[in-house]
Design a protein around this nucleic acid. Structure first.
Lengths: 229, 229
DNA sequence: CCAAATTAGATTGTCGACAATTTATCTTAT
DNA sequence: ATAAGATAAATTGTCGACAATCTAATTTGG
């Protein structure tokens, strides 16, 4: 399945196209984590010159998917449990804020659309019980819409353009299928209700808990892994 | 005075050099807000080819100093009071988090260094009463160190590499000389004390108030400006 | 046989020119 | 005279080649 999302919007330039392809390859693990990136090789592989490729690499660095060292080259990031926790700590704060702002800024129509989206997810989930990939896409979609609803341009940029690719990469490659599916739905419902009631404070709290629960889950898992090793 | 800071670290490549120069020119207003950016002109002005210049532009977009539209060109961002408020909302959350983490992660030696820095600022300020520029640099320096102390790589990246240039641009161009100088020192002292006591919760709260006070100041000023116009 | 220095190879950074797209100007028709 | 369309100028995106830097293999000295 392909996540269309606000990302693959307008692949006008050939630099965009390459960016999307490499981005996807890294997120899905087709370009392995930690592996060195060869500009000539990738340029040949995607049938472009090095100029647009290098621009794509600059943008990949921006969303934390690769790390570059001047005159030395680039590597795909290596994932670590600590990094994932760092990421979730930030998401707790920023998405909590997004909820508070969304409660003030989202027009009723958008809230209604989001409610319909949730119902649609529920149906889909009933049909495909346990299929986590849909849930992930749906979960991301839910978070996306609230972030967009905050109408804070910097917030939107940071979360949607710079952090979410990493979140997806972690989920795909470390088998993070998020919080338990049915519980997540309930939490989503509660959040959208708070936003609809224009109760920003509550929406903030619920979102922090929602993400915080995932984070604590990861910390717990990390703990037990250390004990058994 | 020049803010050395963790930014102008190693201008190895010529793309770096151009980036720093343009960054500074935009922040200080030598390249006016809202004005169109001509690649050939800037390339000639800084004696480089368009290749490194374009890489610099990509990084300027990353720290929100310019906005690019594919096939159409780039413009220096136009500042708005609403944008500044959006920025401070995010800073409240992220720097609050930074304080909480710093209270856990900063080694005693770093805390001691920061204390000494504060004392040095106090002396400087006594000598140059009312000179706000030093205060700004000192204020930024204080915030910088705490962010670095959080040891959260994503947080450091977002705040120090992506948001602070904008903050500085707003301060310089909209005459934001931050909170009142002596009061800011007291607040800084209280924050570092909380961190030294390993009281992350309190440090978080104090930092949110510290930044929130600035934000409310701006909102108030924006309000009165609207009334008088 | 190991370590340091030197050389060879490969990779990144930079340049100037060309192609594609957009913006501005000019023509033309209503 | 105004608006729509066509043409011209300028700007952005892309390409291939060269220069500077880093990585590695080889040589040389201890």
């Amino acid at each position: 399945m392909q996540i269309v999302s606000p990302l693959e919007r307008s692949a006008i330039t050939s630099s965009d196209r390459v960016l999307f392809e490499i981005q996807r390859a890294i997120v899905e693990g087709n370009i392995a984590a930690g592996c060195k990136i060869s500009e000539p090789e990738l340029a040949k592989r995607f049938n472009v010159s090095r100029a647009p490729l290098r621009e794509a690499l600059a943008r990949l660095e921006r969303c934390h998917l690769i790390e570059r060292i001047p005159n030395a080259g680039a590597r795909v990031v290596t994932l670590s449990p600590e990094g994932l926790i760092s990421l979730y700590q930030i998401r707790e704060e920023l998405e909590g804020l997004a909820c508070r702002l969304a409660a003030e800024q989202m027009p009723d129509s958008e809230i209604e659309d989001l409610r319909e989206l949730l119902d649609k997810h529920l149906e889909t989930q009933r049909v495909r019980e346990g299929e986590s990939y849909y849930q992930e896409a749906g979960d991301l979609d839910f978070h996306y819409r609230i972030i967009l609803g905050s109408k804070n341009q910097y917030l939107i940029n940071m979360l949607c353009d710079e952090l979410y690719y990493l979140v997806r990469m972690y989920r795909v490659q470390m088998g993070m299928n998020g919080p338990r599916v049915s519980r997540a739905f309930d939490e989503h419902k509660a959040i959208i209700n708070a936003i609809a009631n224009r109760d920003g404070e509550l929406a903030d709290l619920l979102m922090r808990r929602h993400i915080g629960a995932s984070r604590k889950n990861i910390e717990l898992r990390l703990q037990t892994e250390k004990e058994t090793s």
